[in-house]
Design a protein around this nucleic acid. Structure first.
Lengths: 222, 222, 222, 222
DNA sequence: AATGAATGAGACTTCATTCAT
DNA sequence: CATGAATGAAGTCTCATTCAT
């Protein structure tokens, strides 16, 4: 992976120091929240699976919701980590890569990430609709980072002639919905289908770039 | 809309006869389930909003879960209604439409459907991961209908030369994830963005067909 | 069976006129009360088994408890029927039977009765401790009839020299507890043992009369 | 009381350590179950009488039925404790007592026991017909212990010539039904009569041994 | 007379949270 | 720090009973 994209992951990973018990609680909570959903999980069950007393949970987290947030909030940042890096322009200027290449790297990188954090992301997806706290965080990171950064990247490759000149928001939205759509379907909606991931990524990127039509495009206006 | 596609919707919509109270219960339940999630909703709250006694709910639905299922299960069928029609081949043979056209009709049709049933679909999406009953239904309808039907449609348009000749499953998956992805993002993940739906559909379909690359495709292998 | 004992059963059996539905309700109630106990039986279940609407039960019986009483109270009288007949003295005077004979007839008569009414008697036994109404009836019939009548009978046979001259109450109590005990054990506590009823009755009566000791009794004081 | 019979009671009575609240719950439950029957008793009422929160009951007993069982099951063992001791033969061999004596000791011993545990035994009697769990325990302890042990005892005293030579099962059943019958009537069916217990026991045992007939028995066949 | 939908009190049970140890 | 017994509010569900049809 190229250096500039590697930077995408330089998000501080320090999970503050957690006691042993605290880690056990979090691990148990993740497992149970992911399996039954936040509301349907009981602190009692979490305590049992963690091998601690129920009271111990509340020594570390004032409420059950605080436990949820503490698990899920950091994920928020990491999910969009690749777009948080500061000097996109510099990076783009100093490199001569294609949008296709960028997407390919982005996708396989995020897939690695999802594989490592499936449970937490599942919890996140489940609870975002019901937790205003999380929604606020989501808007903060996604809206203000992902989209603005992507606009610039798209504009960059439009100016280099790689991407057709439709309004960048359209391209961004298509890119985002297509990739997110693929990942949602692949990892959360139909994870049990037999997927050939290598090919799947290849096809997805290729289709995003060139479509599935056999007819040459006359002019690429929308 | 062309006639053959209109047939897609001929799913009987008659919601058996429900008593007045039963309708009130269902309406209230939909609203509350959608807002707080199934587990976090209380039958007490539903009863209050429906203006009935709590016991009345349990006269019509043995358990809270049965209430959920009765709301959400029929949606399953209707969601994939366009793919349940029998003689796809005939329809395709007798018509001279393009895949692009088909997708466009399909999308705007499903969007109408989503708009009319946003809440229920939201509940469905939330609860599928936790309700094996629903998963079973989902597999039954999606797997056995949508995919097999789509394969045939894609093959048809490949034989007519409209679609590049990659394995149909790839095309189907790309189509499905892209459209589902768009709809999920548009209506459930970021419904509050300012969307210009007309254009959005146009772009999405166009991109699916022709991609976003400016460079003519050399060869359309995978 | 001798005529004087036959009179024991001349209790009016007329079950007032009951409608068809009413009979179905009673039959169902008996079955369910006997199986699960009064408190654990629901009017809903009774209605279902009876094939009537729940409301119909309450048209005939103001409350669930009234239904219970209406089933169980008449049994009270019939249980002790043999002792309700008026002129015991006459009967005894005019006949020259033995106490042993009397017991034998009594026992087999009551066994027939129990066999025909096992369920109702079971309900009665279960509910007497909790229903003051029933207790009152029980005391009324048992105390005022059975014991006083039996005293006279025992005295009669003592005066004829057949029974040892201990205070009649002792003999009565022994007779009653022994026979009731046998019947309770035989029909309600261990009904599933393999019983040879003929022999069982024989032995019981014989033991009551002559005991199980091998040594001749010197004197029969207590 | 002779030593060998004293052994009959060496069943460990230690009620594991129960917390203060737990004891209060059990005490309250016994009282209320005995008064109203299991089904008609509410956990709410039990909690109030015990002076604890309703939730506390369910911290100690997963369900209301578990509470019942925990009260009633141990009584099962203790009820038949005198028959659980192992080496009946040895005891009999080494002692030179009469069956009459044995019955007398047994009865007064069981009466003491009943007096101490009237409520629990009442609950037990009420609920056995409806609780398969309890039935299983009853069969296990009664069938396999009481009867087999009693057979041996009876045979022993038959061989010593004290008991008439009818088949032991007959003697055992008569003994059991007579004594159980007496105890049931005395303590559970008509506890409010004025009983002179000393005399009552005397008479009962005497009657069991020698019957109530004044005429000497010719031959003691059945 | 019969129905069965509706009721609301109350049943059993769960749960997040507290607090003395 | 950790525990786990205790809490009481709230949850799901049942029930005897009523009443308009």
């Amino acid at each position: 992976m190229e250096q500039w994209i590697e930077e995408l992951l330089k998000i501080n990973d320090e999970d503050e120091k957690k006691t042993d018990k605290q880690m056990k609680i979090i691990t148990a909570a993740i497992e149970i929240f992911a399996k039954k959903g936040y509301s349907a999980s009981s602190t009692n069950e979490i305590a049992k699976k963690a091998g601690v007393a129920e009271g111990t949970i509340f020594r570390h987290y004032k409420t059950k919701k605080e436990l949820l947030i503490s698990i899920v909030a950091p994920m928020m940042t990491k999910l969009v980590a690749p777009f948080i890096l500061r000097d996109v322009e510099k990076l783009l200027a100093s490199s001569h890569h294609s949008y296709e290449h960028f997407l390919r790297e982005l996708m396989s990188n995020r897939i690695q990430f999802i594989k490592k954090n499936t449970s937490i992301i599942k919890i996140l997806l489940q609870e975002i609709p019901f937790q205003p706290d999380l929604q606020a965080l989501f808007v903060k990171y996604v809206a203000s980072n992902v989209y603005t950064k992507l606009y610039k990247i798209v504009e960059h490759f439009q100016s280099k002639g790689e991407i057709i000149s439709v309004p960048p928001p359209s391209v961004v939205r298509f890119t985002v919905t297509t990739i997110m759509g693929h990942l949602l379907v692949r990892y959360f909606i139909l994870p049990d289908l037999k997927w050939d991931d290598e090919k799947e990524i290849d096809h997805t990127i290729h289709f995003i770039m060139y479509g599935i039509s056999n007819t040459p495009k006359e002019d690429e206006s929308s």
